[in-house]
Simulated assay, not measured.
Amino acid sequence: MSIPTTHPFTFDPTYGMRLEELLAIEPPEEPGGFDAFWRARYQKALTVDPQPVLSRSELTHPDWHVLDLVYLSTEAFRIGGWLLLPRGGQVRRGIVVGHGYGGRDRPDFDMPVKETALIFPCCRGLSLSGHPPISENPSWHVLHDIDKKDSYIIGGCVEDIWLAVSTLAALYPWLSGHVGYSGISFGGGVGAMAIAYDPRIDRGHLALPSFGHQPLRLTLPSVGSAQGVQEYQAEHGNVLETLRFFDAATAARRIRVPMLTAVALFDPSVAPPCQFAVANSIPKFNEIFILDAGHFDYPGSAEQEAVLRDKVGQFFRVP
């Protein structure tokens, strides 16, 4: 292990916790009506016709056909992104690929998969799905309508993932039962909520998942979106009423498909206890991959990422 010992933060991004303590963290007490809340949202999302529009992208790559993509999500929200199709072989699997809270400006061309259609959606308010007055700054985006459970932005982002699955189903109906999800950080947390209620997703990879154990997330010093929520809570004091319904660890208890979850021992942006709360909550078929650090460069990071990348390739290998 090479957990960073020098860093610029005013707090300890390990929070003084060792691996055995992190592996013992359980999800928080869940609010009544959690399942009803999400099932209703999912059923509503299924009624939306995504009406995908594809066009040739200015981006090119030797291994992939690159297409610009626009589809409709709930509330007729226009979601922008990309579709990658393999230049060689058939399309036998689909994967929706989420992004971190920085959004994304291009697809990940190095996804270690073959014979797979990849959709890279930009969740509402971010990157190609920018939509003023929604802020693209993570510290503000995460607060958008946080005082209104039914219209909180994170719920809409989960629906954007479901509509990406619907888009794959519309374009390639033969992929039914072979659609996966892969997401990091913001995309990991949103992905846990999406996978928990969408039986069309047959496996998932979550890396450094955010939004886990919201009561803990409010108390552990962090940078980025978590800090924004903590500052809002300090001023308003009522944020947990909404956040308990958007807890990736609570959602993860419902996941019933094979999962590969990568979590870090040191992370200033997504506190490790919150990441582990998500990983520990997945009931079965879950491999937990331990990184020394997340959201931070450290010695040995390239080697660990290479091992994880190989695992991701095996995990999503076409049967």
Rank of each mutant, 00 (worst) to 15 (best):
V66H: 08
V96K: 11
E159R: 09
I161T: 13
V165N: 08
H61D: 15
S139V: 13
H178E: 15
L84V: 14
I146Y: 06
T60L: 07
P112V: 07
G130A: 10
Y181M: 09
L67W: 14
A76T: 08
D105N: 15
L126D: 03
A169E: 15
L83R: 12
D160E: 11
L83Q: 12
R78I: 04
V97I: 14
L72N: 13
S176N: 14
N137S: 12
L69A: 03
Y181V: 11
H141Q: 05
H61T: 14
V113P: 09
L67Y: 14
C157P: 00
I154M: 10
M111R: 15
L168W: 04
G156W: 07
F120T: 07
V70F: 02
I134T: 09
G94W: 09
G155S: 07
D160Y: 02
L85F: 10
Y172M: 07
G103R: 02
T116A: 14
L163G: 00
L72F: 07
D68C: 05
H178M: 10
W140G: 03
F186H: 13
L84C: 11
G88P: 00
S185W: 11
S166I: 00
R104Y: 08
G98Q: 09
Y181F: 15
Y71P: 04
P133A: 04
D150G: 04
P86D: 10
V165L: 07
W140I: 01
A169K: 14
I119M: 05
D150N: 15
P138I: 03
Y181Q: 10
S127M: 01
S129D: 02
T60G: 03
D160R: 02
L126W: 00
I79Q: 00
P86W: 11
A170N: 07
S185Y: 11
S151M: 01
S151V: 03
Y172S: 11
G80D: 04
A76H: 15
L168S: 01
F120L: 06
V142H: 08
L163H: 12
L69C: 02
K148A: 11
I95K: 05
D63R: 14
A164W: 01
Q90C: 04
H61Y: 13
I154V: 15
S166P: 01
W174M: 08
H99L: 02
P173L: 04
I153S: 03
D145M: 03
P173F: 07
L175E: 13
W162V: 13
F77S: 06
G156V: 05
C122A: 13
V96N: 06
T60W: 09
Y101K: 00
V66I: 12
L128K: 04
P138A: 06
L171F: 07
I153V: 14
A164F: 01
L72Y: 08
D105E: 15
L126Y: 06
L168G: 05
D147T: 12
Y181E: 10
P132L: 07
D63F: 05
Y152T: 02
V97R: 10
G81T: 05
L168D: 01
T116W: 00
Y181N: 08
E115N: 15
I79C: 01
